[in-house]
Simulated assay, not measured.
Amino acid sequence: MDQAPTTLVLVRHGVTDHTTGKRFSGGLAGADPGLSEEGRQQVRSVGEWLAPTADRIDAIVTSPVRRTRESAEILGSMLGREVAEEPGFAEMDFGAWDGLTFEEVAEQHREDLEAWYGSVDAAPGGTGESLRTVEERVLAARDRCLTEHAGRTVVLVSHVTPIKTLLAHTLEAPLQSLYRMELAPASVSVLSHWPAQDERGPWAAVRLLNALPPDRAWLGEPPRW
């Protein structure tokens, strides 16, 4: 693997009122809340943490959803990079669950919830996206990103489900593993992809997982990848 990898620095957006209220918050078809002031400060902390590596960052790509776009614009202004949108990295559509808490979904949509936990092909809220559908569009978006930015480092601002999907696929873990992952708001995970070595596609490795800037965790130096 003597060729330079394409590195994706995965940043989850900062918190919104839905995040702190523990409400399902989907993609463009949902309520589309913006960042709270706490969320903006979380993203600024990520920008300060990434700043020493800014000369190694070639591009910023974001989901078009409001909270991710706002997060990406903050990072773009701090890192001196333009922001490009990729719709394939939007959060999953939760259908009728959007804006509801888990308890409200359990009360109002019990059968849908049980079906969703039982199958990656079940669509939440009746009209939402299944995890399988999200996986297909996220991996297609990843492939477009790897082609466009081959051999470079990209900050990718996205959501819980798409980022977990990328992590699960890199680890060759089943899609159900998304239910067992925790991903904090404004956390940073890093994946590196090398050109295809066999029929399975690009070889990839997880370099960092669910890391937080030093003012929110134990880290005291810039992220390494």
Rank of each mutant, 00 (worst) to 15 (best):
M1C: 13
T7K: 00
L8T: 09
V9I: 09
V11Q: 00
V15P: 13
D17F: 01
D17W: 11
H18C: 14
T20W: 05
G21K: 11
S25C: 14
S25H: 09
L28D: 04
G30V: 06
G30C: 14
A31S: 15
D32H: 07
P33K: 00
G34M: 01
G34Q: 11
S36W: 03
E38M: 08
G39M: 02
G39I: 01
R40Y: 06
Q41C: 05
R44N: 04
S45W: 04
V46T: 00
G47V: 03
G47H: 07
G47Q: 00
G47S: 01
A51P: 12
I57Y: 07
A59T: 05
S63V: 11
P64H: 09
V65R: 00
R67Y: 03
E70P: 10
S71E: 01
E73K: 02
I74C: 07
I74F: 01
I74T: 07
G76E: 01
S77D: 13
S77W: 02
M78V: 14
E82G: 15
E82K: 15
A84R: 10
E86Y: 12
G88V: 07
A90K: 13
E91M: 13
M92N: 06
M92L: 14
F94R: 08
G95V: 12
A96F: 04
A96L: 06
W97F: 09
G99L: 04
G99D: 05
T101E: 03
F102R: 12
F102M: 15
E104T: 14
E104L: 08
H109G: 08
R110H: 08
D112M: 01
D112I: 02
A115I: 01
W116Y: 05
G118V: 09
G118F: 05
D121N: 13
D121V: 09
D121R: 02
A122F: 09
A123D: 11
G126L: 04
G126A: 05
T127G: 14
T127C: 09
E129R: 06
S130T: 06
E136V: 11
E136G: 13
V138D: 00
L139W: 11
R144S: 02
H149Q: 10
T153K: 02
L156W: 05
L156S: 06
L156T: 10
S158H: 15
T161Y: 13
P162L: 03
I163L: 06
K164F: 07
T165K: 02
L166P: 00
A168W: 04
H169Q: 14
T170Y: 15
T170M: 09
T170D: 05
P174F: 12
P174K: 10
L175G: 08
L175K: 10
Q176F: 11
Q176A: 13
S177Q: 08
M181H: 04
E182T: 10
L183V: 01
A186E: 05
S187T: 01
S187C: 03
V188E: 00
V188D: 00
S189A: 02
S192W: 12
H193K: 06
E199P: 05
R200H: 12
G201R: 05
G201D: 10
G201H: 12
W203R: 08
A204S: 08
A204Y: 06
A205L: 12
A205F: 08
L208T: 11
L209R: 04
A211E: 08
L212D: 07
D215M: 03
D215R: 13
A217M: 14
L219R: 13
G220C: 08
E221C: 07
P222R: 13
